[in-house]
Every structure is written in C-alpha cells, then in structure tokens.
C-alpha cells in the first residue's frame, strides 16, 4: 500500500526520532510512505494567530502537492500538522470561493480528492486488519503505559469529523492491544500540556504537565505514550522541571507510540534509536524492558 507522507518541520528537527520510527514500522507493515515533494510549513498554530487566510493557504499548498502526486491518502505524523491540514481541507470544502482564490496562486491545485490521516489513524486501521499476521511479534512485558493524546488528536478549531471518541479516545489503546500491551485508563488523556506556552507562560504549562504526570503515576502507569511531537517534547524535556516544582519523585519515559510498536516488531534499540545520529529519548528504557530488546 502506497501512501503520501508529510513529515512536517519538527520531524526533521526536534522530533527526528518520530520520523525515523514511523518510516521504520510503516515499512515493516508493508505501508510505503512517499514523502511529498517540496512540502512547506503548515503554519502550525501560529499562522492562525496572525493571519487567518494564511492559516488555510499554507496547508492548502501541501494538500495540492499531495493530491497531484497520485496518492489517495496523505499520512501526517505530527499532531499539529495533521490538525492544521484537516481543518484547512474542511474549510476549503466549506468555502469554495476561498479555495479558488488560493488555487489561483498554487502550481499544484487543490482538488479535494485525498484522504488526510494521522499516523495513528493508519496504524489503528491497518494493525486491526491482517497485516500483523505476517509479523512475528515480540512479547513486551512490564509495560503499563498511559496513552496521552493531548489536545490535537480529537479537538479541532473548526468542525471536522472525528472518528475516535472525542473525550475518551481509544485508538492508541487499541493499537497497543494489538501488540499485546494493555494501557491503563486514566483521567487526562486529552488534557492540554500547555503546548507552546511553555515558552512564554512556563509556570502554567508546568502545572498542567504535573497534573498529567500525577494521575498517570497514581494509575500505576510506568510510561507515557504519545503521538504528538509537542506533547512528547514538553512532557519529556520539562519533566525534571515540573516534577521538581510539584515535588514528584518518580519519572516516566515518554515514548512515541512508534517506539513501542517498533520494539514489538522486533527492532533493536539501535534500529529505533541509531546511535550515530544525534538523537535519542532522554530516558533509558532498557531498564524497563531488560534484555528482551
């Protein structure tokens, strides 16, 4: 199965690991990702704060490129990019005049014939099907993850159809179940981590993250699993800070879901986190999984 792929800026930078792992496990699943040509920034949440027109026009360009590449589905791993692109797509459908105006400037016009999916959407669908049968699954023991979805998996600034339950999403749990991991149920699956406000309203963001952390610990979770690079970065890079501030002793690793899937698919730590590159998660997860990896 061939899919168009839009990694977005952060997957080339701070979330490079996510890009790497997504490509790795998709390939193992027989899903071929084709990064679209010359994609540009989607504007993330910032464009909408400055310029409503550009908030649609920026993702529109990428949509146009993806649609003209001949694929029927566009996969976006980054939650912010996914949210922007889905919303823009819906707005372009709802406002045809706007679509014409934008298309005038685009070399690759938006035709509205592509399905936009998040990595999680595809994983949930494909891992529920027969694809797993071909893979020898490693039995992962000792994982009690709390699946943390953040804001952008189910809540959008514009009405778009949401497949998962908005308030209690289950997609990650289902994917993990498919590889034999049972996640804990907890309160703050979709509570905001503070997102970019960590930069300009740090204390508020730290308090929110501590709240999330506390409940995950109270539910006896031993790791957090995410799909959003922003959440991953916040929960991990700020962990020391918010735990110290709120007097939390424990620490939890924050995995992209791709990492756990990768482990179950039998990839080694080296495969998933190539040492020669400049990235790794901050946590030493070998402690958790021992020699099984």
């Amino acid at each position: 199965m061939d899919l168009a792929y839009y990694p977005g800026c952060s997957l080339y930078q701070s979330a490079m690991l996510y890009n790497h792992q997504t490509r790795l496990i998709f390939a193992r699943l027989g899903l071929h990702l084709h990064e679209i040509d010359d994609w540009s920034c989607c504007g993330a949440t910032s464009a909408g704060k400055i310029n409503d027109f550009m908030a649609i026009a920026l993702p529109a360009r990428n949509l146009g490129i993806a649609e003209n590449s001949g694929f029927s589905e566009l996969v976006i791993p980054c939650a912010a990019c996914y949210s922007r692109t889905v919303v823009a797509q819906k707005q372009l459908q709802d406002f045809p005049l706007l679509k014409n105006e934008i298309n005038q400037e685009l070399s690759q016009k938006v035709k509205d014939n592509i399905r936009v999916s998040s990595t999680l959407d595809v994983l949930q669908r494909e891992m529920g099907g027969g694809r797993l049968a071909a893979i020898d699954l490693e039995k992962l023991e000792g994982f009690r993850p709390a699946c943390y979805y953040g804001c952008m998996h189910t809540r959008f600034p514009y009405d778009v159809p949401v497949a998962d339950n908005v308030e209690n999403p289950r997609a990650m749990e289902e994917v993990l179940k498919a590889i034999g991991i049972k996640a804990v149920d907890w309160n703050y699956k979709t509570l905001c981590c503070g997102a970019s406000s960590v930069i300009y309203n740090t204390e508020c963001a730290l308090d929110l993250m501590a709240k999330i952390m506390r409940d995950a610990l109270a539910r006896d979770a031993n790791c957090l699993v995410v799909t959003c690079p922003m959440c991953q970065m916040n929960m991990e890079s700020q962990q020391e800070k918010f735990c110290t501030k709120h007097n939390i002793k424990e620490r939890l690793p924050v995995y992209f879901i791709t990492e756990l899937i990768g482990m179950a698919f039998g990839f080694s730590k080296k495969d998933l986190q190539p040492e020669d590159d400049m990235f790794t998660t901050g946590m030493d997860w070998t402690q958790l999984c021992g020699d099984s990896v």
Partner: peptide, 8 residues
C-alpha cells in the same frame, strides 16, 4: 465540564 476519577 468534566468528571474525573481519583485513582484508587
């Protein structure tokens, strides 16, 4: 707005 359960 939301009802949360206290763990335990």
């Amino acid at each position: 707005s939301a009802v949360y359960e206290e763990a335990g």
